[in-house]
Design a protein around this nucleic acid. Structure first.
Length: 372
RNA sequence: GCGGGCGUAGCUCAGGUGGUAGAGCGCCAGGUUGUGGUCUUGGAUGCCGUGGGUUCGAGUCCCAUCGCUCGCC
């Protein structure tokens, strides 16, 4: 079984595809739940499967610090540890080094940093990141990149992007091809269309199984993000999956799918689930709000998750007020189910050639608001 | 019955020498985009037990009273 991606249908620039991997098949557009530390927080692997998610994320930085990549390998790899036989994509660690590590120094060869957990010193290079991801037995590895801060001057963005491209080439060289496994490159270039296009062209020359777009949703705003996608998409090969890293809100996903993006990951549904925020067909609800104390109805009519079919809003409200862990569990389950339903609906609409009208209807329901 | 202590925000309590009240928690609401179940930003709330007195002015001083509490009988 070799890694493969093919398109079932297109609608404008939007695509409905299928990704074949060593660990299973993934239909796109797809939303990948984030399981940073080898767990989708508050969820059993079985629960994640029941939301419909075909693939999950894990993180190189976090797992190399704890429990350690070699230990994961000795214990049989991430799939076995997590009870997740399906595909796993791991972030390379570059983003976390920037956002979490205490002291960090970037040089041409890599990045030196201190653990945010215990202050211990570590070194991450493109080669080391790829080795770790192989130890983890991740299905889709990501090249080590530098997530360019925002805002930054054009010169800073260019220098950062070029460093990421050199690291991408080294990552490719360090990656061992195995059937059904993949390595994705990452486009950087800030909000500059020409830098984005140039970055994508270089990555295409190196040759990756898929292309990620990184460095977005970092404060530039949705309009600027969409402008970057518009500028980048023409430079991306049609026969490779495109992955918009770290994005985003349901509305971000609607707009990005229409602009030719196939894959997403984001902490929003899981983190929001832990903080009582529910994403529903009728918009966003904060279940801590007192207005739900006596609300006997379902959280989101039309959702088949346990929180919606077996409990009332009032119970979910109570769980959060009482700080009971079942609250985050049920709401994470719901939010992930909602995101899966959202992307599945987009896929169906693309296949039917009616993405625009479908997306308009989805947005109209959000705008109508919660009418209870 | 006698002696001591205490009664201030929903809760626990701060409020030298008198100048019309604060904190923490809770409550109400917001933020969170390649994850710290984290953190954070706002907001509302007081017959300062009650009744008198002194004073220009009392949560603060005086008297009485009610309630709670500890000890002794």
């Amino acid at each position: 079984m070799s890694f493969a991606f093919s398109l079932d249908a297109t609608d404008g620039r939007a695509r409905a595809g299928v990704m074949q991997t060593a660990h299973g098949t993934v239909q796109t557009p797809v939303f990948m739940p984030v399981g940073t530390a080898g767990t989708v927080k508050a969820m059993t692997a079985d629960a994640v499967r029941q939301t419909g998610a075909p693939i999950v994320l894990a993180n190189t930085y976090h797992l190399m610090l704890r429990p350690g990549a070699e230990r994961v390998a000795r214990l049989g790899g991430l799939h076995r540890m997590m009870d997740w036989p399906g595909p796993i994509l791991t972030d390379s660690g570059g983003f976390q080094v920037m956002s979490l590590a205490k002291l960090r120094r970037i040089d041409e060869d890599g990045v030196t940093f201190r653990s945010h957990i215990d202050g211990s010193a570590h070194r991450l290079t493109p080669e080391r990141s790829i080795d770790i991801q192989r130890d983890l037995d991740t299905t889709i590895s990501m090249v080590l990149d530098e997530c360019t801060p925002f805002p930054a001057t054009r010169d800073e963005v260019r220098a950062s992007m070029e460093l990421s491209l050199r690291w991408a080439a080294r990552s490719k060289a360090a990656f061992t091809q195995r059937p059904g496994y993949a390595l994705f490159g990452i486009v950087q270039g800030g909000v500059h269309p020409d830098l984005r296009a140039a970055s994508a062209a270089v990555l295409a020359g190196i040759g990756f199984d898929g292309t990620a777009i990184g460095g977005l949703a970092v404060g530039e705003g949705q309009a600027a993000m969409f402008a970057v996608l518009d500028a980048t998409e023409p430079a991306l090969a049609a026969e490779r999956p495109r992955y918009l890293m770290g994005v985003g809100t349901p509305d971000d996903i609607l707009g990005a799918v229409a602009r030719g993006i196939d894959m997403f990951d984001c902490v929003i549904p899981t983190r929001a689930g832990r903080t009582a925020r529910a994403y529903t067909r009728r918009g966003i609800l904060n279940l801590r709000n007192a207005r739900f104390a006596d609300d006997d109805g379902p959280l989101d009519e039309g959702c088949a998750c346990p929180g919606c079919t077996r409990h009332a809003r009032a119970y979910l409200h109570h769980l959060f007020k009482a700080n009971e862990m079942l609250g985050p569990m049920l709401l994470t389950w719901h939010n992930l189910t909602y995101y899966q339903d959202l992307t599945a609906g987009l896929r169906t609409a693309i296949v039917a050639g009616r993405l625009d009208t479908h997306a308009a209807a989805v947005r109209a329901a959000w705008d109508a608001g919660d009418t209870r």
